[in-house]
């Protein structure tokens, strides 16, 4: 046992009941206060689109939208999300028989291979289109740079974002 584990063992397990809104539905659960938001979403809510690559904020695969803003769910505690609104990529497939235009665009452009980064990429894509930050390839590349993709080489993701932006044009593309 390492020193830190020794110290840690001295503190009792502490839980809290939290209520938050996840993918448009109110959820209430009792969680250990040290549970990360990513683990809560994956293990307590079964939202396994939240992918854990590094668990220290670097890879971006655990990115979710917190009150509409992209954040690393591995770098938040679940208790910190109480009272907030969370979207994971599952929120886009409310209609199980149809793809969301962003998903369609990723399929059409082959914006994914293994799919590990894809939920995060799709959410970030949604955010940047809403923010009107998908104007040029360079801008898209810059805006998605917080999420690592080991497969695609990014070009097809950039194409997918541009395609999605056109599909959503007017409706979601911002100023």
């Amino acid at each position: 046992m390492t020193t830190t584990e020794h110290q840690a063992a001295a503190v009792d397990t502490e839980t809290r009941t939290i209520t938050l809104r996840v993918n448009g539905r109110d959820v209430s659960r009792t969680v250990e206060t040290r549970t990360t938001l990513a683990d809560f979403l994956r293990d307590d809510l079964d939202l396994v689109s939240v992918h854990l690559g590094c668990e220290h904020g670097v890879c971006g695969c655990c990115t979710i939208l917190l009150d509409g803003e992209s954040v690393r769910s591995c770098l938040m505690l679940a208790v910190q999300a109480r009272g907030h609104e969370i979207e994971t990529v599952e929120s886009l497939s409310a209609d199980q028989n149809a793809l969301h235009p962003i998903q369609e665009a990723f399929a059409e452009e082959q914006g994914l291979q293994c799919g590990f980064c894809t939920p995060a990429m799709v959410l970030r894509c949604k955010e940047i289109i809403e923010d009107g930050k998908a104007r040029t390839d360079d801008e898209v590349r810059h805006e998605i740079s917080g999420i690592l993709c080991r497969c695609t080489g990014y070009q097809n993701i950039v194409n997918a974002v541009q395609n999605a932006s056109r599909k959503l044009g007017g409706k979601e593309a911002g100023a």
Partner: peptide
């Protein structure tokens, strides 16, 4: 939760995580 897959995936993951015992998780506080 809308969109959540069946719990069996989850069950397997929990078993796996507990087995490897090395997951990067915060200590108690």
């Amino acid at each position: 939760v809308p969109g959540a897959p069946s719990p069996t995936t989850h069950d397997r993951l929990v078993v796996y995580r507990t087995t490897i015992g090395q997951a990067m998780k915060p200590p108690r506080f």
